[in-house]
């Protein structure tokens, strides 16, 4: 897994000798496919690092497979992106989403898969997208997740991190630090799930006993925004 991820990191697009030299993804020039390949490789590495922590969170109020499920899913994503190397941001995200749906095995697969696939579809065929466009596309992706799961903010789900993260990215002024703002908002949203009572999924069977535990989906969603901020730096 880490081998695949670091291979993607060092050589995101074979056609470009120096991916960071010209464009690659600085926010003011627009984000290209190489940027999204780096992001997903970084997510795969981060999920691999954090798998045990995510699974431990899931053990408290779920079925103790969130970390291992996501590790399997994002490893498959890294492998598929390495093999295919799609040429547009939209195609990168759509392929990643499809991989998650077919390989994760748990509810996080269709949920994260829908997030990335819908976001990718929103970005269309553009070779470069602005931060504002990514923010808008992510909001559409998050809305699709909410519809799929029949969930809303405050249900103690991944939405509690995804919604503030995507909103912050979409609302940010490109001159500031939009990715840092999105990361902070998502992490704050994830932290706030500790006080919430679960209303969706297996954790909801626990009722009041779910209070006092961080939601694992919100925690892994915060990880997505944290790696996005790292890759954008």
């Amino acid at each position: 897994m880490s081998g695949t991820a670091s291979a993607s990191n060092s050589d995101p697009v074979p056609a470009r000798a120096h991916p960071d030299a010209g464009s690659g993804g600085s926010p003011d020039e627009g984000l290209d496919a190489a940027f999204f390949l780096r992001w997903l490789a970084a997510v795969a590495a981060a999920v691999g690092r954090e798998a045990d922590r995510l699974t431990a969170l899931d053990a408290a109020i779920g079925d103790a497979d969130h970390g291992s499920n996501l590790r399997r899913g994002f490893t498959a994503v890294a492998t598929a992106l390495d093999a295919d190397r799609p040429g547009t941001p939209g195609a990168v995200l759509a392929l990643a989403g499809r991989q998650l749906i077919s390989t994760v095995g748990g509810a996080s697969g269709p949920l994260y898969g829908t997030l990335l696939r819908r976001t990718g579809k929103e970005l269309g065929d553009a070779r470069r997208v602005s931060v504002a466009e990514l923010g808008a596309a992510l909001r559409a992706g998050v809305a699709a997740v909410a519809q799929l799961g029949g969930s809303a903010a405050g249900d103690k789900t991944m939405l509690d991190a995804l919604m503030p993260g995507a909103d912050a990215l979409g609302a940010s002024d490109a001159a500031g630090d939009p990715f840092g703002a999105a990361r902070a908002a998502a992490e704050e949203g994830a932290r706030a799930t500790e006080a919430l009572r679960a209303r969706k999924g297996r954790a909801s069977y626990l009722g009041e006993r779910s209070v006092g535990h961080l939601d694992r989906g919100a925690s892994s969603s915060a990880l997505l925004f944290a790696t996005l901020a790292e890759v954008a730096r």
């Binding site: 749906i101 095995g105 509810a107 697969g109 269709p110 829908t114 799929l148 297996r202």
Partner: peptide, 12 residues
């Protein structure tokens, strides 16, 4: 759970 969500994601 994931059975419902997977099928819905596939139908979409």
């Amino acid at each position: 759970g994931s059975a419902v969500l997977t099928v819905k994601a596939l139908l979409a």
